[in-house]
Amino acid sequence: MSIVDALIAIQNSGFARAITKSDHLVIAGLQIIHVFAFLLLLSSLVLMSLRLLGLVLQRQSLPLVTYGPTRLFWSGLSLAAISGALMFVTGTRHYFYNRAFDAKMLLLLVAVVIQLVLFRKVAVSESPSPVLATATVALSLVFWFGVAIAGRAIGFV
């Protein structure tokens, strides 16, 4: 069974059909949840980045500021992944042949690795070097906003 066969099988499964056939509003609802989830992720990232760059809340320690937003970040990502997966199964082939979708998945993979390997550690250290903090923020912002831009582009390609 080739990948395309598998994708067709997923798209034609009872579960995927149930979502597609139910109502336009279900897909619209999933898209809205997906957008909100990603906004949750990006807003916590923006706040943590501003603190890492020393632009806001400098009188509070880094771990104190990043504790809550970190949880918000991963909640946002989880919700985005779930709603995204549900949208994907309704149109596997549409997404599979979409170049923006390919780019989004690739960027997402790199962004998650950056977050796990680098950002997570820098964000809880008491006083990271400004160079490391700036590099971490730059990398993280570029890739996560890249994911968002590629995601938006799926609809235009």
């Binding site: 916590s44 990232l45 923006v46 809340l57 809550g68 906003f145 968002a148 831009i149």
Partner: peptide, 30 residues
């Protein structure tokens, strides 16, 4: 349109952070 959507992560995003502080969910010690 993309800028309108993505800039929400700053405008809506930071308002949301502030609101979550007001309701006592986030940054409670600030």
């Amino acid at each position: 349109e993309g800028t309108h959507l993505l800039s929400l992560s700053i405008s809506f995003g930071l308002i949301l952070v502030t609101d979550l502080r007001l309701v006592g969910v986030l940054l409670r010690r600030v």
